[in-house]
């Protein structure tokens, strides 16, 4: 190729505003604009209780979106995160309520089940070479069905497990700092996001995650067993879905087998708004977190303004298109 791709001097300024950072900034600015807009529009919006409600509402979608981010950075997609969340919640319910196991077994069971299902999806994609969209679409339906089978199509209540609802709704921070009653669900979201962010930027798993998304064949020809790493990434994402399952069921104090479908799209929406490229190789957890917050703020703010539920969905759709469009325009200019 004789493109003029000569070494271009990179100024400190342009480094600061490199592609992902820029998109994150854009997403963050949108979040601030939304917050300002809603606080002016309604005095009820900027209440501490409402802010906490927004954070609480972000927790489940946020954790799922972190899982989705990992897979999307590899250039794949995971449509099964929603029903996998439900399935792991059902497993927790079966272990704790139906089989009367102790709490840690239930929690570990949910996370390991999630990881195992991720392992299966990853194997379909890496070993059987099924396109991620199809493989995880199949997995989505399998898990939706299995959730109903395992639960007998009825909600499982965590009546035997004292304090299960505290996992999400309680506030460890609030016990220490009474003026800051941040729910545990939010704390867990931030811990999951922090760890995932660290893994992505600092560990070998993260590096291969970006490498595979950027150019899988080049990584494979470097002598890296890309199949195995892909499976590992899907497994980690599955385990994170297990955490989301625990959060969800704790919030409802029950495992609702019919829930879950549609959550995958919300998660993917948060990832996309946060600037992660669906073609892989680019993205960040912080962006995803901001994306999830934007969606929660939007839903909450519109509700505070008494906009009908149907219209909230319409607005969310428009925001997704605008967010990606803004990203496209900026990329063309770059």
């Amino acid at each position: 190729m004789n493109t003029e791709s000569q070494v271009k001097p990179v100024s400190l300024l342009s480094r600061l505003f490199d592609i992902t950072a820029h998109q994150r900034l854009l997403a963050f600015a949108s979040l601030v604009v939304l917050l300002v807009f809603f606080s002016i529009a309604s005095p009820n919006f900027m209440q501490t209780s409402n802010m906490l409600a927004i954070l609480q509402a972000t927790s489940v979608n946020g954790v799922l979106a972190v899982a989705a981010t990992l897979v999307i950075i590899t250039g794949g997609i995971d449509l099964s995160v929603g029903t996998l969340m439900t399935f792991t919640a059902v497993i927790a319910g079966v272990l704790l309520t139906n089989l009367n196991m102790p709490l840690p077994v239930g929690l570990l069971g949910a996370i390991l089940t999630g990881a195992f299902c991720g392992f299966c999806s990853g194997s379909f994609v890496a070993k059987m070479k099924i396109p991620p969209f199809i493989a995880t679409l199949g997995m989505m339906l399998i898990l939706k069905g299995l959730s109903l089978v395992f639960s007998g199509a009825r909600p499982i209540y965590f009546s035997n497990t004292e304090g299960y609802d505290e996992i999400s709704r309680g506030s460890l921070i609030g016990e220490v700092l009474p003026f800051l009653p941040i729910p545990n669900g939010v704390l867990i979201l931030f811990i999951v996001a922090g760890v995932a962010s660290y893994v992505l930027s600092k560990t070998i798993l993260g590096r291969y995650c970006f490498g595979i998304g950027s150019n899988e064949e080049a990584v494979r020809l470097s002598g890296v067993n890309t199949d195995r790493w892909k499976i590992a990434i899907y497994s980690v994402a599955g385990g994170i879905c297990g955490i989301a399952g625990i959060l969800m069921s704790s919030r409802l104090n029950s495992a609702q087998p019919a829930l879950g479908l549609g959550y995958e799209l919300e998660a993917i929406a948060a990832v996309v708004i946060g600037g992660t490229s669906l073609s892989g190789g680019r993205g960040s957890i912080i962006g995803t977190l901001i994306g999830a917050l934007i969606m929660a703020v939007l839903t909450n703010g519109l509700r505070v303004l008494s906009v009908a539920q149907e219209w909230q969905t319409v607005v969310t759709g428009i925001i997704i298109i605008l967010a990606v469009y803004a990203d496209m325009i900026r990329r063309q200019k770059a």
């Binding site: 590096r207 970006f210 490498g211 950027s214 150019n215 064949e217 990584v219 020809l221």
Partner: peptide
């Protein structure tokens, strides 16, 4: 296509 992950840096 087969040698480099173009979006990643020289170090990686």
């Amino acid at each position: 296509h087969f040698g480099l992950a173009l979006g990643m840096d020289v170090r990686a």
